[in-house]
Design a protein around this nucleic acid. Structure first.
Ligand code: FES
Ligand code: FES
Lengths: 146, 146
DNA sequence: TAAATAAAAGACAAATTTATCCTTTATACA
DNA sequence: TGTATAAAGGATAAATTTGTCTTTTATTTA
């Protein structure tokens, strides 16, 4: 469904929101320990997200990553499109060069419906909402014991 | 969503069903021309499908690929699982080592619902049905003009 | 101002997926 | 029986994704 990059990116932003109480910044080391992701690789993904103003960052002592109030309210689809692009929402399920209403592939109508459900779900889910779920202990960002 | 291998595989079986009138066999060259896929690569995918008894093949003169009546009635999910495995239907949307009801990721319940919709759709769609759509000219297996 | 810190950025490496080429095996048919 | 044909299979290569390591830049604080 999502690329590894995207999975790490989503988990990272959720962790940041869940961990940064009152504007505190979270370092890449702490993030990656808590989401069980490779550090340097995830750092690059967070670079993409900061360039796209989906997360904020601060260099130097007491620096790290955080989300401002506007960013917390962003929907998950912003994270996904920044990392994986829009192919999941616009591309043909059978890999035709373009999804077309006039020359559809055989699964077009069924696939389109699912594609739209995914899009809706990602549009309706905010980063903050998922962060709260983690804060309350209702969900996790890494498998506990191996 | 699906891997390239799976996209080619699905398009190939649909083409075979749509093109082989009364048990006629279809060669790999003809298949790949009509679904716009790389020949040797697609041949290997069809090998996987024949090993899994999802398509039939015949070597030698007048050989090629075809589907018997039982195979035509198979659902698309058989093709997908043979090529891409079951990860799409069982794996965690955020890439956790395992999807768990007791220790869910933050999007588990929303993702599970979509995952099940995809599964249902693939279970309810038969190869033959999609082949008929092609036969009737209601859909296509490759983008017409580039 | 200098040292310490942490993200940004660049270069490189491993792993996986996708794609190509060549040889072998099975089958039909002359 | 021998030849042509087409799938099966093996080896290799290109491309992409994923992961690691090192250097640079910006910022804080002593
Ligand atoms: S043409 Fe294939 S999904 Fe629209
Ligand atoms: S735990 Fe992530 S989808 Fe179930």
């Amino acid at each position: 469904m999502f690329s590894k990059s995207c999975e790490y990116g989503i988990r990272a932003v959720i962790y940041i929101v869940s961990a940064s109480k009152n504007g505190e910044r979270v370092g890449i080391g702490e993030i990656c320990q808590n989401i069980d992701a490779p550090e340097h690789f995830t750092a690059k993904i967070l670079q993409i997200l900061t360039r796209n103003r989906i997360v904020s960052s601060q260099k130097g002592v007491h620096g790290g990553f955080y989300l401002d109030d506007y960013q917390k309210g962003l929907a998950l689809i912003e994270v996904v499109t920044a990392i994986d692009g829009k192919t999941l929402f616009t591309g043909c399920g059978l890999g035709l060069k373009q999804c077309s209403e006039t020359n559809p592939c055989p699964i077009h109508s069924k696939f389109k419906s699912i594609r739209n459900d995914i899009k809706k779900m990602l549009e309706q889910t905010t980063i903050e909402e998922l962060g709260n779920s983690i804060k309350k202990g209702k969900s996790v960002l890494k498998t506990l014991k191996i």
